[in-house]
Every structure is written in structure tokens, then in C-alpha cells.
Design a protein around this nucleic acid. Structure first.
Lengths: 162, 162
DNA sequence: GGCAAACTGAACACTCTGCTCAGGGAGGGG
DNA sequence: CCCCTCCCTGAGCAGAGTGTTCAGTTTGCC
């Protein structure tokens, strides 16, 4: 056990890849597909979430199908030292789906969704009117050429250690 | 059944909320917690993914725990009419985890990850050197005050129709 | 009043799960 | 060279959950 905190090995990666493609698979079925014993898969999954790599199997909800067809991004420039305060206020806005603190021109990058143009207007207003937000720049997502993905990194992990 | 394609009802929302909090729950356990029959939960889940609302239960992989501790965003301005081409090329870069086409100053918003500063340098170079990319603006994510979330919207759906 | 849709509760056979155990390499240290 | 530890294997067991089907009840609409 020289040093194993970082990184995952070949079998781990193949397991995650398999689960990425077919999340509903049970432990037994995984073991069959990977050609290993059931206990091994069980042990690997235990280890992966003990290490925090596999944090769970959250349901993937398609916001567009739920009626939230619009996505927009806003870059906020905020008053010195008020990042925490602003984040808290953004937290209270349901349509705000993600916030990152960044270096560079803006201070916060916000992703939000809305049901239609009027709704988006309302959401954006609410975001830019948050206290201590000084300047904002908003853009609407027209399409998503690459949806959130992890697969390529897992594939590389397979080749590296396989 | 006046109009039901968009939106979800109270029970749907409570089900999704439950699964959001405890993704590992089986159908039977869900039915117990929601106080409905097992068949109902089964029917709801079927309908939700037939409608495309519930797209699956992908494994949540923590990239930081996998060694990719750095996240960066880049806004790309690209040559007229080359969005598709650029997207294809970005697709080939494993560290590129997400791309949106946007209105506004830039044309593409790119999210990428890296293992360390040197690695990030390499990734950014690779992204900005993609053909037809004219101008770029990159920023590093220092923290993520609000990680990707859907919960608040589900909670509202519960209150609205409940 | 009657119909269609949805929910209930029960039953069936089947499969998977969590857990435990003994045994078999592979690698490191003495 | 042997020993010890770690990991994987393959097997077994009781218990629980799964998919599926069914008839009966409730609900809302025409």
C-alpha cells in the first residue's frame, strides 16, 4: 500500500465506465460483464465510495423535460469580501443551479434555468439584483454541444493502467 | 388530463426528491416512504423516463477525488460558422467536461478539469489552440459555492401541486 | 350514469443482495 | 527461502426486492 489515495486502477475505471453506460446494473451483473467475482465488484464499489470517488447514483433529471427549457449563464462582479454573502443569497433562488467562484474578470459564474423568456427575465433580474452584485454579464445557452461528461477521463484511466 | 406533457405533479416531485436524497432506494422502499402502493411508484418511474424527465441514475464520480482537482472555464470566440467544427475538436479533448454555445460576447463556454497547474496549462493550451478559435478568456474555479443541484426546483414542484 | 385512468393490495416465481467462509496466488520483509 | 498480508475467487445461505399480473376500488370527465 505504497500510495493509493489518488487515482484509480484499471478495474475501478472499467467498473465506473460500465456503470456510466448502464447505471441500472446490479453488482452481480457488473461482475459478470467484467469477468471478476461478485465480491470483488462489491469491494471495489465500497472502496470507491469510501475514497469519495463514487459519491452515489443521483437521479438524472432533465430540466428541459420538466419545463425548464432555457439555460443561462451570468458572470457576476461583486463587492470586495462579499462572496459568501452573495452565494448565500443566490442559494435562495431555486433557478440557480450552479455557482462557481472564479479568477479573472468576474467573481462568480452562475448557471440558471427558466421556463420561458419572461421567466428568464424574472430570474435574471432576481440574480443581478442580489445585494453586493456590482456588475453582471449574462448570456443564454443556445445549445449544449458537449453535455456534462466524465467518460473520456475514465477511458483514459483504463488505458493508462490497463 | 388537460395538458400533461410539461411539468410533473406532486407525487412525481416527491419521488424525485426522495431519490435525490437517497438514490440507492429501491422501488419498494420508495413506496413505503411515500405511502403509496409499489405499483404506483413503478408506474411513476416508468412514466417519468418515458417522458424523458428521469434520464437515469448515472454514477456520480468526484473528479477531485480522482486526481482532477482543478476546474477552469474558458469562453471561446470562434470563426463564423465554425461552431460545429470547433465542438468536434473539443470533443476529442478528454479534460473538456462540458461545452455550451452561448449568446453574448463569447460563442462557446467550456468547462475543463486538470490534475495540477502544469496539467491545466497543457489543457488550456490545447483548447485555445483548436482551429478556428480566435479569442479566448480563461478563468479558474477557486471554489464551488453551489454545486450542481436540482433540488430547489423539485421542492417548488411539490409545493405548487401539493 | 358510465367510461377511462389511476391507485391499491395481493400473489407468483425469480433474481439479487448482504454476509460469511475457506482457499489460492502475488508481492514485500525478514 | 519462508512467512505474512492483501486481494481475488467461488461457494453457500437467508432474506429482501424485482418484474409481472390480477381483480377491485376510487377519481374525474363526458
Amino acid at each position: 500500500m505504497t500510495e493509493e489515495s489518488p487515482g484509480i486502477d484499471d478495474l475501478d475505471a472499467r467498473l465506473l465506465l460500465l456503470l456510466t453506460d448502464e447505471p441500472r446494473l446490479g453488482v452481480l451483473e457488473c461482475s459478470r460483464r467484467l469477468g471478476v467475482a461478485r465480491g470483488t465488484v462489491q469491494a471495489r464499489m465500497d472502496r470507491l465510495d469510501r475514497r469519495g470517488v463514487l459519491t452515489g447514483f443521483p437521479p438524472a433529471v432533465d430540466l428541459a423535460a420538466m419545463g425548464y427549457g432555457l439555460t443561462a449563464f451570468a458572470v457576476l462582479e461583486i463587492a470586495q469580501g462579499k462572496r459568501g454573502e452573495v452565494a448565500t443569497r443566490l442559494h435562495a433562488i431555486p433557478e440557480v443551479c450552479e455557482v462557481h467562484a472564479t479568477t479573472g474578470e468576474g467573481d462568480l459564474l452562475v448557471r440558471m434555468v427558466a421556463q420561458n423568456n419572461a421567466d428568464l427575465q424574472r430570474v435574471i433580474d432576481r440574480v443581478v439584483n442580489v445585494e453586493w452584485v456590482r456588475r453582471t454579464s449574462t448570456s443564454i445557452a443556445l445549445s449544449t454541444p458537449i453535455p456534462p461528461r466524465v467518460r473520456p477521463l475514465l477511458e483514459r484511466a483504463v488505458r493508462q493502467s490497463g
